[in-house]
């Protein structure tokens, strides 16, 4: 039989819930970076300058083709050799933000390409500048088809935050490991971590679908 101890479970629960705050903060910050930087990477691939397009596309491919955990180690441990001395939090946010920015840029790219060419032509006929066409006409229409993909990566980045434990960011996984090495009990902390992730991921996915429908309605697109 499993040796599950409820008193121990209740003892460690407050500590894990406190660490959940850090997990959510890491996921939120990392996602905020990824959402903005991903758009920059997507737009950079659509400029008339071929060299920019090629460099950015290769960089995105490179990031998507190497493991996140390697990128985290690289920024944190190799960064200082280039004069980039960062705290675990800062290094972690840069690595995870950049990693997911690369994925989100592909989501945006699909969304931007799905906007009919006629929308560009109408904007040109009204003499709107390129920047204004993007922000007023194209991006609002690229948003609804991008939301499902964006939601997937929100859940994805949340589930990848345990990787930050490898450089000592005190999030959920790191805290569960610490409890394990202090008490030699792993069953309860890891189980609780799993339950907490499940309890947060499932409603998020549902909320994203509600949000998607709301955005479509808000933009008058059915």
């Amino acid at each position: 039989m499993l040796d599950w101890r409820w008193d121990f479970t209740w003892d460690i629960l407050p500590r894990l819930i406190a660490a959940t705050g850090n997990t959510l903060l890491a996921a939120g910050l990392g996602y905020a970076i990824a959402v903005v930087l991903g758009l920059v990477l997507a737009l950079a691939q659509r400029t008339p300058y071929r060299a920019v397009t090629i460099v950015v596309r290769e960089a995105v491919e490179f990031i998507r083709s190497t493991p996140l955990v390697l990128q985290i180690f690289f920024v944190f441990y190799v960064g200082p050799q280039f004069g980039l001395r960062l705290s675990p939090w800062a290094a972690g946010m840069i690595a995870i933000g950049l990693h997911y920015a690369a994925y989100l840029s592909e989501v945006y790219r699909g969304g931007l390409e799905s906007v009919p060419k006629g929308q560009w032509e109408a904007a040109t006929s009204l003499n709107l500048s390129t920047a204004r066409t993007y922000f007023r006409i194209i991006i609002p229409q690229a948003l609804p088809p991008s939301l499902a993909g964006m939601g997937n990566y929100l859940v994805g980045i949340f589930k990848d935050t345990p990787m930050l434990s490898v450089i000592g960011v005190a999030e959920l996984m790191h805290t569960a490991n610490a409890i394990g090495s202090e008490t030699y009990r792993f069953l309860e902390p890891y189980t609780l971590v799993g339950i907490i992730f499940l309890a947060l991921s499932l409603p998020t996915a549902a909320l994203i679908r509600v949000f998607e429908a709301w955005v479509r309605r808000k933009l008058g697109m059915y």
């Binding site: 006629g118 929308q119 032509e121 109408a122 003499n127 709107l128 204004r132 229409q141 933009l219 697109m221």
Partner: peptide
């Protein structure tokens, strides 16, 4: 000015907003 076969109205804007976009921003 130009009108197109497939209208190319901006779907996320109302009729009025479609007409106001250029006059306000251009």
């Amino acid at each position: 000015g130009m009108c197109f076969q497939h209208f190319n109205l901006f779907p996320h804007m109302t009729a009025l907003e479609n007409c106001m976009e250029g006059p306000v921003h251009v």
